[in-house]
C-alpha cells in the first residue's frame, strides 16, 4: 500500500502561494518596465495603463497576505515552511512597493510625453534592464532555492547605484549649463532615483529569499562591494 502523503495538502498550498507571489512579481516588474518604456517612447496610453493597473496590484498583495495568514492559522508551519510563508508575506509588500514605483515612473512618462528629450536616454533603459535582471534572478532563486543566484542578483544593485549617480551627475552638469531644462532634468534624476529604490526593494526580496532558504539572517550589503569602496550617499 502506498503511504499516505501527509505533506500533500501543505505542499499544494505552499505551491499556490508561490505561484501567486510569482504572478505578483511579474506584474510589479512589468509596471516598472512599462512605465520606463512609456517614458522612453513617449507612450501616454501605456503609461495610463500602468497607473490604472496599480489597484489590481494592491488587491493581489492583500490577497497574498490573506492567504499567508490563513496558511499559518491552518497549518501552524514550522522551520522552512514557516520561513517560506513569512518570506512570501514580506515579499508581497516589497513587490507592491515596486509596483507603486513603476506607477511613479509612469506618471513622469505622462508628464514628459510630448516634450523633446533633453538627451538620448541610455542609462535609464540600462537601469531598467539591470532591475529586471535582479528581479527575475531573485524570483528564480526563490523558486529553485538557489542561494548563489540570490546573492548574484543582489550584487547587481551596485551597478544600478553607479548608473543612478551617473545620471545625477550628468543631469546636474546639463542643468548648470542650461537652466531651462531643469524641469526635465530633475524629472529624469527622480526617475533614476526611483529605479534605484525599486532595485533596493529587490535586495530586500533577496534577503527574504536567503532567509527562507538558509534560515540565517542575511544582509544584502554583504554580497556587494565593501562599503568603503562605494561612494554611498549615506542613505
Amino acid at each position: 500500500m502506498k503511504d499516505l502523503n501527509v505533506r500533500q495538502t501543505i505542499d499544494a498550498e505552499l505551491e499556490d502561494l508561490r505561484r501567486s507571489l510569482l504572478s505578483l512579481a511579474g506584474q510589479a516588474g512589468q509596471a516598472v518596465k512599462n512605465g520606463l518604456w512609456a517614458l522612453c517612447n513617449q507612450d501616454r496610453i501605456l503609461a495610463r495603463e500602468v497607473i490604472d493597473g496599480d489597484d489590481r496590484l494592491d488587491r493581489q498583495t492583500l490577497e497574498i497576505d490573506d492567504k499567508c495568514l490563513l496558511f499559518i492559522a491552518r497549518f501552524q508551519p514550522m522551520a522552512q515552511d514557516l520561513r517560506t510563508v513569512s518570506a512570501i508575506s514580506h515579499m508581497a509588500v516589497d513587490l507592491e512597493r515596486i509596483g507603486d514605483l513603476g506607477v511613479n515612473v509612469a506618471k513622469f512618462a505622462v508628464k514628459l510625453a510630448g516634450k523633446p528629450f533633453v538627451k538620448p536616454l541610455v542609462d535609464l533603459p540600462r537601469m531598467g534592464e539591470l532591475f529586471q535582471e535582479m528581479l527575475d534572478g531573485t524570483m528564480r532563486a526563490f523558486i529553485n532555492g538557489d542561494v548563489d543566484e540570490a546573492k548574484g542578483a543582489c550584487a547587481l544593485d551596485d551597478d544600478i547605484d553607479d548608473l543612478e549617480r551617473q545620471v545625477f551627475r550628468e543631469m546636474l552638469l546639463m542643468m548648470m549649463e542650461n537652466p531651462r531644462i531643469i524641469e526635465e532634468g530633475t524629472a529624469l534624476i527622480t526617475v533614476a532615483r526611483t529605479l534605484e529604490r525599486a532595485a533596493d526593494h529587490v535586495t530586500n526580496l533577496a534577503e527574504r529569499v536567503l532567509y527562507a532558504i538558509t534560515g540565517e539572517v542575511a544582509s544584502a550589503s554583504s554580497f556587494r562591494r565593501p562599503r568603503g569602496s562605494r561612494d554611498d550617499d549615506g542613505r
Partner: peptide, 17 residues
Amino acid sequence: LFTSPRDGRTEDYITGR
C-alpha cells in the same frame, strides 16, 4: 530550532515529513 533547524532530520520532523 523551530524557525531554522540545523539538522535536516529536525527540519523533516517539524515540517511533518
